[in-house]
Every structure is written in C-alpha cells, then in structure tokens.
C-alpha cells in the first residue's frame, strides 16, 4: 500500500511536469496568433483588445496557473478557430467532449482484441515449435506486422463492408444514439488497429515462452512428473508474461495516442481528425489539450503496467 501511495505521488508529479512542458512548448511556437485569428479584420485596436482578452499580456506563470487551474476544473479553454455562435468562441471541452469517447472506445476494443487473441496464439505457437504450424505462423505474423494499418483498413472495409456486407462503410453510428450499434461498427476499425499488434505481441510472447521453457525450473517441474500442460500453465506462462506486460503497455500507449490514420480511413469522428485539423489551422488551445491528453494517457498506462508487473513478479515487491 505504501508502495502504491508513493507511486501515485510520483505519477501526479510527473503529470505536473508534463503539463508545464506542454505549456512552455506552445509559448515558444513562433508567429503572431492574434494577427492570424483576426485575419483581414485586424486593426491595432482590435489586436490589442484580443490580446488582452486572451490574457497574452499576463506574465507566463500567471498564464500557466490560469490554464492549469482551468484544466483541473474542466475548463479547457476556448478554440481559436471554431465558434459556437457569432460572438462566442467554442470551448475546447465541448469540441473534444463528443470525440474523445470514440477514440477511447476504439482503443479499448483494440486492446481487448490484442490480449484475447495474442495470448492463446502465442502459447499455441510456442507449443508447435519445429512443426509445420511454426513456419506458417512465422510467415503470417511477419506479413501482418508489415501491412500498414491504413491499407489493412481498406482491406477490412472491402472484405467486411463490400463483400460480406457485415457493416456499411462510412455508416458511422453515434454512441449517443445506439451504443451497441456503435460498438458493432467500431469492431472493424479496431481490427485494423489490432492485427499488426496481435502479430507483434504473439511473436513476443512466443519468444518469451521459448526462453522460459529452457530454464532450470521447467526441468524441475518435469522431473516432478508434471504434464506439458501443467508445465506451461502452472509454471511457464506467468514468468513469460512479465516482459509481455511491458510490451503491451507500450502498444496500448501507442494505440491510445495514435489511431489517427484508422479514424480517417473509417470516417470516425475521433480526436485524431481533430488533432490534424487543429494543427493545420494553428488552433493551439486544442492542440495543447490534446498533447496533454496523449502524454497523460501514456504516463497513466505505464503507471498501470508498473502495478500489474508488481502483481505478477513477487521479486519486485520484496526487494
């Protein structure tokens, strides 16, 4: 428990440092924002007014404090590009609010697919060492790893959407209208994200299993008269999963942060598209929040990996 407390404090401090770094980074980006927002309507008076409104005249520390306290209260600032009505700028929270669940659910589904498929696949693969299946898996996973996910997305759309007609390409179902339908639609982009990662994870687990299989305690287990099933599930799997957990953590972080391409291919209204458009229109408050979101997710995932790792490996907690 003490460990957990310490870890949590470390987590919070890391998040704080990340927020400072994100904030500072956006202060350094060159170019006059006010001029670009006002465009042709810019006059010195208007520029000065807007500058005051956006708080650009405050010292950086004050601006950071305003920004971060706002973020903590749920006020993520206002977009410079989108407007809610004629005289009001769009709050970033509202802009992100209905897009974030799409991205998050896509990630959750992908990760579930990866875990559910890759672990049995890795085990089966390790067991079939030296047989024909070994070579088949080797070729299949290498191919799956090599295919870029946008191309996989096109293939999935063609196969399941056009040939099998299991879903309508482009027929996105909003989660607010029909949650089950939403998940059903999301399965296919999730598949495109997951397939290369499944191949990687299965390969990684297989190698880890084979390494563990040659260790001394496996010989001990066999000398006790344990069956191969028992050796695999009673002894080897848990030890072999340890490096895989770290690997999965990296993969999860990558998926949560970067399913941008797949969102484009499947026409999903996730944050990926928003991020791209915000960068190209220099909508910095939005980009700033998305960067904070992505880094925070990565840090939290690693925090969870640490905890899981500790649960699997008793050697860490007793050191």
């Amino acid at each position: 428990m003490q460990y957990f407390g310490k870890k949590t404090v470390t987590l919070i401090m890391t998040l704080f440092l990340v927020s400072v770094a994100a904030f500072l980074a956006f202060q350094i980006i060159p170019g006059d924002v006010v001029g670009s927002i006002l465009g042709t309507e810019a006059t010195p008076e208007r520029e000065a007014k807007l500058r005051e409104e956006l708080g650009f005249n405050d010292p950086p520390v004050v601006r950071y404090m305003n920004w971060i306290t706002g973020v903590l209260r749920g006020d993520l600032g206002k977009s410079w590009r989108y407007s809610k009505s004629m005289n009001e700028m769009m709050p970033v929270a509202e802009l992100i609010g209905d897009k974030l669940p799409v991205t998050l659910w896509l990630a959750v589904l992908s990760v579930l697919l990866i875990v559910i498929v890759s672990v049995p696949l890795g085990v089966f693969w390790a067991k079939s060492r030296g047989r024909a299946a070994d070579a088949v898996f080797s070729v299949l996973t290498q191919t799956a790893m090599a295919v870029p996910s946008f191309f996989l997305g096109i293939l999935v759309t063609y196969l399941f959407g056009m040939v099998l007609r299991w879903f309508t390409p482009g027929g996105y179902v909003s989660y607010q209208d029909n949650f089950v339908g939403f998940l059903g639609y999301l399965i296919f982009p999730a598949l495109s994200v997951a397939v290369p990662k499944i191949a990687m994870t299965a390969r990684f687990l297989r190698n880890s299993l084979l390494t563990e299989m040659s260790s001394d305690y496996v010989r001990t287990a066999r000398s006790k008269g344990a069956t191969e099933q028992r050796v695999m599930y009673g002894h080897v799997l848990r030890n072999a999963l340890m490096p895989v957990v770290t690997f999965l953590g990296m993969i999860i972080a990558e998926i949560v942060a970067g399913s941008i391409v797949v969102e484009q291919v499947f026409g999903l209204p996730g944050v990926g598209r928003l991020l791209i458009s915000s960068i190209s229109t220099r909508d910095l408050p939005v980009v700033e929040i998305l960067v904070l979101y992505i880094t925070a997710v990565v840090i939290v995932v690693y925090f969870l990996v640490d905890i899981v790792y500790r649960m699997i490996d008793p050697r860490i907690s007793h050191k």
């Binding site: 260790s215 001394d216 305690y217 001990t220 066999r222 000398s223 008269g225 848990r238 008793p314």
Partner: peptide, 23 residues
C-alpha cells in the same frame, strides 16, 4: 510421468534457478 516425482526424484545444482521464481 508415473515414475518421476513418485518413485524417482531429482535435486539440481542451482537451487535459485531450479525453483520457479514466481511461485
């Protein structure tokens, strides 16, 4: 397997690695 463990058993050289570290 009918003999291993039950009628014949083995003690190995390296007691650290011969026991499963996570059990």
């Amino acid at each position: 397997r009918r003999y291993q463990g039950q009628r014949m058993s083995m003690v190995f050289q390296e007691p650290m690695t011969s026991l499963n570290p996570t059990r």
